[in-house]
């Protein structure tokens, strides 16, 4: 029977990730300003990156770089001594993807701004309504 303290220590990182995820999701849905939405999107993606990285951690293990270099092939490498490298690799990819998405989103926001002169979604929709009826 584990105590509540142990439970919190074992899971708090996942909860932090969930909180971040929700902040991002809420900002994307509820905010009216497009740049705020873009920031929300970035928080959302970052939360997932944190989630993966926390999968990779191992108690008592160090960063996944083998200490003695190529000459040290005589000494055995134990998997328990190094943290899981795979999530780090995957997240390097996810970071790049999120940067790329951010770039494209900002370019689109820039195009929208030059078109309508505002980044508030309701004002843009108003202008669209005007131009379609008038």
């Amino acid at each position: 029977m584990e105590s509540i303290g142990d439970l919190i220590i074992a899971k708090y990182n996942y909860w932090a990730v969930i909180t971040l995820l929700l902040i991002g999701l809420y900002a994307m849905i509820a905010k009216k300003n497009l740049v705020k939405k873009i920031i929300g999107m970035n928080i959302f993606q970052t939360a997932i990156i944190l989630f993966y990285v926390s999968i990779g951690s191992k108690k008592g293990a160090t960063i996944p770089i083998i200490l003695h270099g190529p000459a040290g092939s005589s000494h055995a490498v134990h998997a328990a001594d190094y943290i899981n490298p795979l999530p780090h690799v995957l997240m390097l990819t996810a970071i790049v993807v999120s940067v790329a998405t951010l770039g494209v989103a900002l370019a689109l926001a820039m195009k929208i701004y030059s078109q309508y002169g505002t980044l508030e979604e309701d004002e843009i929709l108003e202008k669209i309504m005007e131009s379609e009826t008038g």
């Binding site: 994307m28 939405k37 999107m41 998405t101 989103a105």
Partner: peptide, 10 residues
């Protein structure tokens, strides 16, 4: 397209 970016990213 920006709306698509948001939905697509979600």
């Amino acid at each position: 397209s920006l709306n698509y970016v948001f939905m697509g990213t979600i």
